[in-house]
Structures are given as structure tokens and as C-alpha cells.
Design a binder for these strands. Structure first.
Lengths: 250, 250
DNA sequence: TTTAATTCGATCAAATTTAATCATAATCAA
DNA sequence: TTGATTATGATTAAATTTGATCGAATTAAA
């Protein structure tokens, strides 16, 4: 029984039931659980299914990533406190990147009267800065409706053409080991913006600190300054890795 | 019972009742209250629901999706008639350019269910096609607040990287002598899109026919098809220059 | 305002699942 | 056949998930 055949069988069962358990698969296919687990890992990496604990689900059954508007309402106070502190570092004539995260979006309200240039892939940011003193450069590419953002190869190339003094970015999770993203696209975008900036600000409310996500895309060296409302003792872990930490209270 | 399954159940109940209590969820799903609490926390962090004391609520739809102001509702009937006719020529799998004019914007409503790709520099177009079958590619560059559009060198380069089967464009004025634009930027954008398209549709309500403006940027050879509600005898002037004319009535 | 009752978040322990390591079996090329 | 590469299965340590407990925080009532 080759991997191809097993994969076919797994997808068949998945189509029929919507979800499967490793134990079932093992007995139905006649291979060990270890092998099934390996198969599922491979298939999940190829986007053929969604891995759960003890089994797998059809991709279509997975709760979808939530719209930007909904996410923006979470942890509002903390996000605003973080952004107020970050905005204090922005000077007239700065050129800054703002990514498509819901945290960085809250930065807009604090920079409306600054004479700066903002380069962003976030549609809400563009909209928010519409009638302000800020000059906006919008990154082009494929429009991602769910994230209200622009991604893709063209976006990456666009970013590579520009250079900013500061970048204000978010991540899905951050630990002493590195940075975690919720999707390849977010990771790619974060890397692209960071590499074109003199100083990278990471804006993370407390829920992001110590959290990992499925995609670790870089170590902490990417970041210069961490702005957060988290104030646990393990913040020193970040400082010992060379990050400056701005601690704020909400 | 995995988290994904529980999340499904919770959202289902939330949809049905608008709000749920932890105790209900615990007994209905068959897991401890601690686990339900953890699930709700996670889901709230993802913006899937609002956390309340002792339970959760459905997210209200009050947070409005980003909406761009819709400019000049002039000659609406004529523009809609023109766009309905133009849309009839758009087939599934087409890749089309739509420019930032107020006429071309009206095209959106007629293409929402088509399986096509739209490349545009117009923010209202992006917004309008947000939740449709259409895949949108947004042109990057400097945001022009007044025109709700993207312009500049970067935009021009972006357009040059793509190719479309059809372009749907507007102008400030059109005569037998050529095409007139209201600004350098509009002219530059029109030229760029036209040069990358197999077939150029010019969408002009009657007020544009025979009108000149301060910048004549090209002769009529740029255009393949003129769609208009104008029906004067001098339309033959355009046809004699090689244009096809679609005449519509509003 | 004070008090009582819930609810929450943090911590811990048990059970399960996973990832990593290694040894064995199968496959393939020369 | 031999040697090398790959796939599989067994074993074990690490990580996740879950539920229980208890002080802290929040809500409701007096």
C-alpha cells in the first residue's frame, strides 16, 4: 500500500464523514497509527486536509478566519494603549510601513495629523487615513477579502521597491524562540516590510506573548522594538535577545 | 471531541439563540465548564463571538465594513444602461481592467456573479466587488484621495506587468480628433491599461461625446468599442475611424 | 457600601496525542 | 547480488488537551 493509495483512501473517507480519527484510519487502511499520522502531516502540509488532535477534518469544515472588522474589536483598550505609545515615536517626515493586522490598524487614529508617508497593504488603513495629513502609498496585488488586505507576488515586489524608517507590524504569536504567523501570506508580508525598514516595531497585546501558531517564520532578530501591554517577568527573555521593550498599561 | 467540533456546535447555538451560557454549553456538548470557558476565550480572541460573564453573545453586525464614499451620481440611468450593455460582453475567465471613472464603477453591479478577474486602480471598485465571485487585483501606488484611486509610477509599472482581454475605461471627453483627460494621471492610467488589453471599451455617456478637455492624450486608435447612450448622427464619425459603436437607450 | 454568590484565570495533575529516534523491512540502481 | 535509499513500525520523551481546584475578580443583592 503506497502513500498515494492511502492518501486517496483518506480523502475518500474524509469526503464521506467530514472528519476521521487516526485509530479508525489505521484499522481501515491496515497500517500502523504512526504511518497514518505521518500521512496526515504530509497531507496537511499540502493543504489537502486540516489536522486535528487525534485525526483530521475536511478543510471546508474548519471555522474560517474571521473578518477584519470582528477582530478589530478584540482587546481594544490594550491595542489603543500600545498604539499610542508607538505613535509617540513617529516624527514628521517619517516613512512608515503599516501591515494589515488589527492592532496596527489602531495606529491610524494617532497619526492622522502627522506629516508622514504611510506604505500599507491594509484597506482599512487606507480608508482610515483618507482625509488626513498623511500621504498613503497602497501596495498592489491580489485582494484578500477576509483579511481586507493585499497579498501576493506583486505585493512583495512592490514592498521591495520602497524603504521606510519604521515598520509597525503584528504577528499571530511571539516567543523567545521567534515569530509565528497565521498564514504564509502574513509571514511573507511581515518579512518583506521588515527587511525594508530601519527599525521594526512589533505591536503585540498580551494575548500574543508566549503564543505559538502553526507557522514559525523568523527568529526575534527581525524585531527592534516590542510594544506590549504584557508585563510578565519573562519580558526579560526578549530583552536578552536584543529587543527593546516598551511596556504600556491599558 | 475536538476543539473544531465544539466550535461548530457553539457557533450553531449562538446563531440560533443569539447568546449562550457556559452551563448550557457544557451539558449540551458534554465537556466540562472549564473547557467551554477555554473555547470561548479562544473564539473571542479570534473575533468569532463576544465574551460575556457566564457565556457569550453573537457578534453584532453594527461594525460596518469599510465603505468608500460613492461620488457623483450624475447621469446614473445612462451610465447603468451603458454598463449593462458592456457587461454583456464579459465572459467567465475573462481578465479585465476597470479604471477609476465613475462610469466604469457602475459596471461592478453587473459582474458580481461572473467568474472573472478584475484589475483596477479604483478603491470603490475594490469595495463594491468585496463579497462577490470576482477575484480582484488592486494596482499599487500613491493613493489619490480626491479620485479614490491609485496613481503614480508604481501604478504604471504594475499595470505593465499584467495583460487583460478587455479594458473598460472612461475619459473626460471624446471627439473624432481624439481622447481628452482631466488630468495627467488619468491619461497616463488610461494609456497604460489600454496598451495591455486585447480590446478597449470606452464607456461614455452623452455628455462626454464631442467634449474636449485641457489634455488631449491620444487619438481614437486606442479604442476598439465605444459604448454610449448618445445617438446623434455624428456617431458615424467615430465608426469611420474604425471604432465599433454600441448604442444604448436609458 | 457591604456582603454573598458566581465566574474567571492560573496552576496542577492525569490522560492522550504527537514528534523524534532508532531498528527493521522493502525498494531500487548498479 | 550488493549497497544505498526509502518506507514502515516500535519505543519513548515531549507536548496537548482536559478536568479539578482555589484564590482573585466580577456581578448581583442586601
Amino acid at each position: 500500500m503506497t502513500f498515494q493509495k492511502r492518501a486517496h483512501k483518506i480523502l475518500e473517507l474524509l469526503e464521506a464523514f467530514g472528519e476521521v480519527e487516526i485509530r479508525q484510519l489505521s484499522s481501515k487502511i491496515g497500517v500502523s497509527e504512526v504511518t497514518v499520522r505521518r500521512d496526515l502531516t504530509t497531507m496537511a502540509a499540502n493543504g489537502l486536509l486540516y489536522r486535528t488532535h487525534g485525526g483530521a477534518m475536511k478543510i471546508s469544515e474548519v471555522i474560517k478566519p474571521v473578518s477584519f472588522a470582528n477582530k478589530a474589536a478584540v482587546n481594544l483598550k490594550a491595542k489603543d494603549a500600545i498604539c499610542r505609545r508607538a505613535a509617540a515615536d513617529i516624527m514628521d517626515n517619517d516613512v512608515i510601513f503599516i501591515d494589515c493586522g488589527s492592532t496596527a490598524f489602531r495606529l491610524c487614529q494617532f497619526i492622522k495629523n502627522k506629516k508622514i508617508k504611510v506604505i500599507t497593504n491594509s484597506l482599512p488603513v487606507v480608508n482610515e487615513l483618507q482625509h488626513s495629513a498623511v500621504a498613503v502609498n497602497l501596495i498592489g496585488g491580489e485582494v484578500d477579502t477576509a483579511r481586507q488586505a493585499v497579498h501576493g507576488t506583486m505585493a512583495k515586489e512592490h514592498i521591495a521597491r520602497y524603504h521606510a524608517s519604521k515598520a509597525f507590524l503584528g504577528v499571530d504569536g511571539i516567543t523567545a524562540e521567534g515569530l509565528y504567523a497565521g498564514s504564509e501570506q502574513e509571514a511573507s508580508n511581515t518579512l518583506a516590510m521588515a527587511s525594508q525598514s530601519d527599525c521594526v516595531y512589533m505591536l503585540c497585546d498580551a494575548s500574543k506573548i508566549g503564543k505559538t501558531s502553526y507557522l514559525k517564520f523568523n527568529d526575534l532578530s527581525l524585531v527592534n522594538i516590542l510594544v506590549t501591554n504584557y508585563n510578565g517577568t519573562d519580558l526579560t527573555n526578549f530583552e536578552s535577545k536584543g529587543l527593546s521593550v516598551y511596556s504600556v498599561t491599558d
